[in-house]
Amino acid sequence: MKLTKGQIEELYVFTRKHYVEHYDLQTELVDHLSNGIEEQWQYNPKLAFDDALQVEFKKFGVFGFMDVVEKRQKAMSNRYRKILYGFVKEWFQLPKLLTTIAIFILFFLVLHLKQASYVLMGLILILGAVNFYHQFKRRKKEKAQKLKKGKVFMLESMINDTGNGVSIMLFGNIFNVLQIMRFNFSELNNYWLALIAIAATLPCLTFYITAYVMPSKAQELLEETYPEYNLI
């Protein structure tokens, strides 16, 4: 006896109820539960669907799917980091290396100014506002897509959320630090300024990649990661 389409749908609802948010993991667990239930039916065809499901679910232990979800997130974060690292590497190879050097030189020159803190704070405010506008527009688009599709993949969430997280961390924290310290960078010697300029360039690249490059390539990255992406 095989599960019906309706019962498969019920299993998806069941996984969502048990805190499995993402479609990729839901799908794998639904297939697992289905196989288990169908096997039980081979020996006991009269067994009710719900009872068979409970038997299969118990096999996951007292924490249910939580452990699987947590570990999956960890594995996917690793994957995300690897992808991010690949993009960052591009910025240290020609031709993008020239842009990286230009950003570095810009920071280095700005840091020599007496009002460096204010210039940097102004820069952060402008970039923050532009970014806020873009994120807002994208969120709206994503929401519409989500409603249409109803299925969110784990890597998709990570691509969308990390960009926001990085920008909040970057714009919020650095702005606060600059404001509290009102530090006069121009008193430092060139080695320190170069070091600070490098330390400023790296988060800039990370921000640009996580908030703009990766979301714009999301489709491609998801197709690479999930063979089922085009099947649904």
Binding site: K2, T27, D31, A75, M76, E228
Partner: peptide, 18 residues
């Protein structure tokens, strides 16, 4: 995630199998 396994998905009995 370590790149030791690859995945394939196929439709089997009303559902997707990885």
């Amino acid at each position: 995630a370590e790149g030791l396994l690859d995945v394939e998905v196929a439709k089997v009995d009303n559902r997707l199998r990885k």
